[in-house]
Design a protein around this nucleic acid. Structure first.
Lengths: 344, 344
DNA sequence: CTGTTAGCGCTTTCAA
DNA sequence: TTGAAAGCGCTAACAG
């Protein structure tokens, strides 16, 4: 059962204006091949009928939907800022977003189902925004081969043939480690993110390698396995205070875990940064108001979203042989250490 | 220019299986009016060709898109959890989501443009998820009259004729105030959210009325105008310590501002909760790891998203005369005070 | 400049 | 049980 008050169609307008459908089409597409007179008649017919073009029909005939799909995983809010960057750019150049959630540890079949459901709707491209996890079946060559629309992945290890946009986690973590080491810390622990995640492994690798290069210890008891949640940060700090009492600094793979680590340190009467310096990662909103304000690495998530979108549009334009207008300028990636009270 | 390798269509399958298009349609729609024999032949033709039904064409003919639009405003991440509730339910009953961002203070024309762009794509309904703001043109009767698809609004003052899903902010704030008053606090300040927002006004109203009922003061210098950001919470606390020195408790309209308020109190050497008790609102993720952990009101945003989605589907089902299956059970709304260290 | 004729890929009649 | 024809609302290709 369809709703009663149907929308006016191009035919209704044509009838009313006494011209052919095609002329209507020309008018609503700003074709120059219409006389001013006719155009005016059509325009008023359009207004009288409250006519609006069906984008759906247009997509069907044109083969373009000006819609991209964002496949994400918001459980831990990883992508909210990055997502804001995507929407900003998408709005600017007239693209709509259809979003799909997929578990980070989704299996091949689920990923395939999501991909297909998207392509079935004629989306122009896919922004696969789930950071690489060890399983990440969507990064497998046999999977990618089945995606016959432009696609850009976010935050994964480089792979030949794939377009991947992401942050250089190793370089960011180096900034953090360099700061701790040059400010004289000698017993630097690490609370790591889940090791199945590429971004977490990169940060940990930088921790380990920086310590090695500086001739400092990086034993197992200096490392704690976290899961991005503050509770795990708290456990990590508790672990270090007990098993690595000489600890004088902690590099935490994520600000949110840093929140928990700081809480535990305070509860145990340690002074930050006098007794223990703490550096987080990501400049999570609010980290500048933690107690004490958390020194961290600005990760520029918004830029990531914008850059990924821009890269996708470039592929789409190439794919369809058109050119998207109004793409905003990409602001430069700011890659920096934000020094705050927790590690001056 | 269209891409080269076109997808197989229903006609291709028909040709290959040696039957009519209609029969293919019957098979892919699980019609019982197909012989087992034919069905098998069609099935294998489908597989051989890797055929997938075009959802776009289906939407056009059926008049349904099984897609709803979510109009939101993620700038301050208000809705991320609530949004997770929407996606969960949408996935479960086979709905896709197309999201649009709109400034909280968008004018009538912009709101109309967004609404139209959505309806032009044949979305089945709209979830207008921007909390009411004084301008909120989309809540105006003349606006609503133009939306000829099912629509549900979130977090707005009740209005006859509109379906609105939201949290009872007044009741929640009462819980907070009751806790402070019964635990003996007598000089209770308030850091308010933006007064153009309905949810902020409700919380403030509860603060004022609870104080009045308890015979306590609620003068202007006991109130500070915040903007949800922690910086404003910090300013608020600074203001009270200077202009309302007898303050022994602060009810903060949002946890995020509470973070800033706590920081300032610590910096000025005040003990929380001994000197000043603090209660936030919303149980923002991480508030249980603030220093000290923040007593707050659980607002159940996830439930809000789920309930709003369920309400919308109900309207859509009525509108189209169908019935959606697989809707998950709505878990009950948990409406509670979470007592933590900042206000035991 | 304008109209006619075909589709886009599917569903919905109505016959057979 | 199957098929033919018409149409969803629009655009593209070709005539005039």
């Amino acid at each position: 059962m369809k709703p009663a008050n149907k929308r006016a169609t191009i035919s209704d307008v044509a009838k009313r204006a006494g011209v052919s459908k095609q002329t209507i089409s020309r008018v609503i597409n700003d074709s120059p091949l219409v006389s001013a007179d006719t155009r005016a008649r059509v325009q008023s017919a359009i207004e009288e009928l409250g006519y609006r073009r069906s984008e759906l029909a247009r997509m069907l005939t044109s083969g373009r939907s000006h819609t991209i799909a964002v496949v994400g995983n918001t459980v831990h809010f990883y992508s909210s800022e990055s997502y804001a960057g995507v929407t900003r750019f998408a709005d600017a150049c007239g693209y709509s977003l259809i979003v799909k959630e997929l578990a980070r540890d989704a299996d091949y079949a689920s990923a395939l189902a999501v991909m297909h459901s998207l392509v079935d709707r004629q989306i122009d491209g896919i922004l696969w925004a789930i950071p690489e996890c060890c399983t990440s079946p969507w990064l497998l060559p046999e999977f990618v081969r089945q995606i016959n629309v432009p696609v850009v992945f976010m935050n994964a290890a480089p792979r030949p043939g794939l377009t991947i946009v992401g942050y250089d986690n190793y370089a960011g973590a180096e900034l953090a480690m360099h700061h701790l080491i040059t400010s004289g810390r000698r017993h630097i622990a690490h609370i790591a993110g889940p090791t199945d995640m590429w971004i977490a492994r990169e940060r940990e690798r930088a921790w380990r390698e920086c310590l090695a290069r500086a001739g400092l210890s990086h034993d197992d008891h200096q490392r704690f396995q976290g899961d991005w949640q503050p509770a795990s940060g708290q456990l990590g700090m508790r672990h270090f205070l007990q098993h690595f009492p000489e600890v004088d600094a902690v590099f935490v793979a994520g600000d949110y875990m840093g929140l928990g680590a700081q809480l535990e340190a305070q509860l145990q009467g340690r002074k930050i940064p006098e007794d223990i310096a703490i550096i987080g990662f990501g400049n999570r909103p609010g980290s500048d108001f933690y107690y004490p304000p958390l020194t961290t690495i600005e990760q520029n998530k918004r830029y990531q979203g914008e850059a990924a979108f821009a890269a996708l549009i470039e592929k789409i334009d190439a794919f369809f042989g058109e050119e998207t207008k109004n793409m905003p300028e990409l602001e430069p990636l700011v890659h920096q250490l934000l020094v705050r009270a927790s590690a001056p």
